[in-house]
Design a protein around this nucleic acid. Sequence first.
RNA 1: GGGAGCAUAGCUCAGCCGGUUCAGAGCAUCUGCCUUACAAGCAGAGGGUCACAGGUUCGAAUCCUGUUGCUCCCA
Length: 883
Amino acid sequence: MEIASKYDSYGVEDKWYDYWMKQGFFHSVPDEREPYCIVIPPPNVTGVLHMGHMLNNTIQDILVRRARMLGKNACWVPGTDHASIATEAKVVAKLREQGIDKASLTRDEFLEHAWEWKTKHGGIILDQLKKLGASCDWERTCFTMDDGLYDSVIDVFIDLYNKGLIYRGIRMVNWDPKALTAVSDEEVNYKEVNSKLYYVRYKVEGTQDEWITIATTRPETILGDTAICVHPEDERYSHLRGKRILVPLLNRSVPMIFDEYVDREFGTGALKVTPAHDINDYNLGLKYKLEVIDTFNPNGTMSEAARLFVGEDRFVVRRKITEELKNNGHIVKIEEYTNKVGYSERTDEVIEPRISVQWFMKMKELSKPALDMVEDDTILFHPAKYKNMYRHWMANVTDWCISRQLWWGQRIPAFYLPNGEFIVAKSKEEALAIARSKTEYRDAEITLDDLKQDEDVLDTWFSSWLWPISVFDGIRNPGNPDINYYYPTNDLITAPEIIFFWVARMIMAGWEYRKAIPFKNVYFTGIVRDKQGRKMSKSLGNSPEPLDLIRQNGADAVRVGMLLCSPAGNDLLYDDALIEQGRNFCNKLWNAMRLVKGWPVDDSLAQPEVNKVSVDWFNSAFNASLLNINALYDDYRLSEALMAAYKLVWDDFCSWFLEMIKPAYQQPIDRPTFEAVTGYFEKLLKVLHPFMPFITEEIWHILAERGSTESIMLSLQPVPDGYDQSLIDKFVFAEDVIMAVRNVRKEKNIPQKESIRLFIRKNNNEEPDTTFDTLVGKLCNISELGYVAEKVDGSVSFIVGSTEFFIPLTGTIDIAEELKKLEEELTYTTGFLGKVMQKLGNESFVNHAPAAVVDVERKKQEDAASRIRVLEEQIRGLKVQQQ
RNA sequence: GGGAGCAUAGCUCAGCCGGUUCAGAGCAUCUGCCUUACAAGCAGAGGGUCACAGGUUCGAAUCCUGUUGCUCCCA
């Protein structure tokens, strides 16, 4: 049967994926084997696969497949995240397209739409992962809003609340006065706008004509001022220490405060402090215990608290109050000014910072053990440099705002009583029971209807931080067999930008709820960028469509291409050439298979000497390389492990080994060599399988008859055996000889088909090594290989190490050219020797450097000297001939 | 503004406790080859003051200091 000379992944990949699924090879249940577990970083449920996912999930699949082939019980738990902000925004947008305003819907109606959206678009991304070859245990697929996971989140909230770790607090949020909702930081677009900087003078209390001038871009907030702040070292204002200032128009008396926060260079160096309407002012307010006066209504009009302009819009008021201030002699000057203003992504309305009541989680206590476990390498980061970042954040951790003004998510289980008190409980019924037993409503007639559940949902990360536990139902059933077996998981593959949002918090949750780390290693992937180094994004349109890439090149090629250039923590600059390299490698493998499959085997044939040494050498080369690959895996240097395997296959196996043992055209191969070759081929396929699962399965099945339920993915990785370093070294010498002969052929235009003779001059110092003579003979098409004591006249010569080789030639030899080459070589070697001698002549070096280093230099000296002797002798000989 | 990291061949990177893996790998480039597995290939070749300036040392890509340039995270 003719096998195509180009590997075509089309059909092959689906065939094997279906096969693996049908056989249930990805499914894992606890047994007596050592577990190996990865939980997927759950992608957004309605997201689609992008290049970053491809890289991240390729790495996970490599680790999982390898663990499986190391005999471990490997389990990769897939799933998706409800991604409350992103998903709710998508649903809102979709409803808007249909002419439905979210505000016109009840919570339940909206959620119905959301679930409908989730059902329609959810899980697409997981199907895409299948195309990549991901060996996830699909029977364990989880979603953060599945009942069990939802309940786990609620249980944890209640538990932490009862432990006093969750509290209600005040926080500045980005308020959209048009949508009447808080929006997340991610939903605020900052734009540069031309505005004005108003210099306004405030009277110092108790003086007739003493003033302090401040600069502000927002005069309408003056009505909410509760202090004036200057830098403590600013001498212009030092005389105001202890004084009070009168807010213009209201004549409210506010304190002077002194804080280093103030930028002395900006404006007049004096700052009005409005804690209700600016985050920095709010922080100052906290520090100096200032009054907070919220002068705005939720819709952006002035509130009663403003006392003036009540009910008028903030921008109208800006104009009016400026006039008013002018009339009263408070405006000093007005400058043109450019600043950044936040706009709501949804409504394009100017965002108003607004004080609001939110739910918080205390972090200090939980962060301590989480920091320690990374510091002392109980959990390892790859690369380790991210420990610094982690340490810095954990040391400066602030409380976590866990409430979000959204509907899509886990609703906060707090129930408010008519008196404003609240009860945290699993359900309204439970809350009612508690109310009846513990509160002032003990004896009152209150019903379920009197309780109102908190409108907010929890931050998405408040469910993802439990992910490694909740996917095994370890919150609700802490003793169940799955959690006991799979937890702690082994490796987490994620991006450094969510080290705090997610990684750190999983470590905290793990300690809080399991008294154990959630994972042993964290592997940080980089960002996939385009050739210009720009982050790939939909809006830039600079990202290739992952599924197209897979269709066109095969998943194996894409996996190899992406991984080859992405060491842990480094960004990957995507280039189509990478995928091409992967594809070429697939083809190389494919053709190696074609070659080996095409050899007739003759059982009566004895194994020729050349094949025997070749097999011996490859055995050593393979084992040395395998050892190296395993070490690289242990260090999580997957890119390098792949590169080592790539070179082992391409260079050592294909370019050398197969050429070494390749029978002459249409000649059979002996049985022992054939068995050895196919044996190593299989081992190589196994080494490659984690990187390129499909083609290795395909070739593995072509290479030999396999049972109907067999798979390379269930086979065991080859175990490194001993290797003979001296054999490898000797081969390197033989390689040099072979390459030198090839060069001679090239220079002298001698075709490979034409056989030549090769003579080796015996070195006086040592016995020549003849191990690879037959090999040199075969690969260089040598008709006679002999050892001589003297140089051979009428031949081209070359030197490897300090051994001379001669190839007798019938044609004339260009002596002048040979001389030139030799003399160049001599100059170089003499220079080299000079440097070595200089070093050895330096007494300090000889005295201070370790003996081994000095010995190395002495050896260099010897080698160079003997090489020089040989060169000089050759030059002398040629010169004689020349005359 | 606070913190962290990076700078080595055209590109992407590796180079540990300073010394034979010391200037490397892959890709790209150039030159030959359609040699019966593979032109998605084979055989070769060229290419780097290791950002800059100091210092420590017998010895620095490697350690220290400063300068410059870039990136990321937090505010």
